[in-house]
Design a binder for these strands. Structure first.
Lengths: 155, 155
DNA sequence: AGTCCTGCGCAATGAGCTTGCGAAGCATCC
DNA sequence: GGATGCTTCGCAAGCTCATTGCGCAGGACT
């Protein structure tokens, strides 16, 4: 069950993280295999869940989702009930791209995507702060994206 | 130059954000077109930069990158020189998946991925706090991921 | 040395991609 | 009001690529 990753597997993963739609023959050439064992390895990586899925990455600015906001959230209380309800609420909002429960300064970190600052404040007022679990919200608003990578480091 | 998105284009984008490797014939069926005009639309979306790229999404836990940390960074000063050097430094670290320059409470927000908390503190001590621009760092450490979506809302 | 096991390359078949072409819908302009 | 030009569709042909089964080589264990 635990699939070991040899250098060729890591090479495959590195290439697929850069180009998820590369043809199998090109991928095979890149990693120094013939097409069939290369495809077999990819299938194994998929079945093992190491490759979770393939997605198209859109340009946020060009589809009316130009603004990213990081919202740090504090809960009213810290019980399981509260986090569960918060999770359910958050899952329904497509604007919330990521949601993490944290320990330390705040209780949750959200990455929220909207068209502009106007839409964001509307979302926060109308939806985010109305979730019963939420005590308060603090935002960090990026003015510029310096780096946005999708490639996990593979040792 | 400004490419307009009709409902079919948005439908295509929605599907490709969910499955970036769907075959063109299946995609065409899904959106109610024949394969050729469907492929043509996809090509146009790619050339317009609306589709930026296709990537394989890996399971972080299974490739030794199980820990995500949000680091908020404060700079020593606020000039262009400092941000430029910070950007260059950050770009070289594969652990830094995202980096945003922010306004408000802190100066930058980073999403950093490492194997575990140990590796993170080592990274912060050895690399992050040694960037000359950096005055201080505060971290928010997720204990649990409630949501990790790659699908931008498309109206 | 013999056997088992794992992983590679090769070849054939079938599916999907890609391009050119003709037709239909629609707006514009005499 | 009808003709013209533009856009975008569907169809068909050629070609690349994915997929599967099979034989073979190299290493481990007996």
């Amino acid at each position: 069950m635990p699939v070991i990753l040899d250098p060729i597997d890591r090479h495959i993963l590195r290439v697929l993280q850069r180009d998820g739609r590369i043809s199998n023959v090109d991928l095979a050439k890149e990693v120094g295999l013939s097409p069939s064992p290369c495809l077999r390895r990819v299938r194994l990586l998929e079945e093992a869940g190491i490759i979770d899925r393939y997605v198209a990455v859109l340009d946020p600015a060009k589809v009316g989702a130009g603004l990213t906001v990081f919202a740090r959230v504090w809960f009213k209380t810290q019980d399981a009930e509260v986090t569960l309800r918060f999770a359910e609420a958050v899952r329904r909002f497509p604007e919330v791209m990521e949601c993490y429960l944290t320990t330390g300064e705040c209780d949750a970190v959200l990455r929220i995507v909207t068209a502009d600052l106007h839409s964001y404040w509307r979302f926060q007022a109308d939806h985010l702060t109305r979730i019963p679990s939420v005590l308060s919200v603090k935002t960090d608003v990026p003015m510029e994206t310096l780096k946005r990578s999708f490639e996990l480091p593979l040792g």
